[in-house]
């Protein structure tokens, strides 16, 4: 696991605590919506704001498919840092 992944996972975890959806662990296959974290559209929007402010870009605004899982969010930043 890269340090970048750890950092992004912590950012997501901090955000979830703030919106009162904190979890002890955030496995990669945990769904962001539906039965997973059950983020509504505005919470997802807020997460995108947090990620953009922290890392300068975010997977929700990148123009591709919306991330569906925690792993999709991490993969977006991993891909960005992979040479």
């Amino acid at each position: 696991m890269s340090s970048e992944t750890t950092t992004v996972r912590q950012t997501v975890s901090d955000f979830l605590v703030r919106v009162k959806k904190g979890r002890d662990d955030l496995p990669d296959d945990l769904a962001l919506f539906g039965d997973g974290l059950a983020l509504d559209s505005l919470e997802a929007a807020e997460l995108s704001v947090v990620l953009e402010d922290t890392y300068g870009r975010d997977p929700f605004s990148a123009g591709g498919d919306l991330p569906q899982t925690v792993g999709d969010v991490l993969a977006f930043y991993e891909a960005a840092t992979t040479p």
Binding site: S41, A44, A45, E46, S48, V49, F60
Partner: peptide
């Protein structure tokens, strides 16, 4: 603030 998901927040 412009937002790709909901237009603005």
């Amino acid at each position: 603030r412009p937002n790709a998901l909901v237009g603005q927040v």
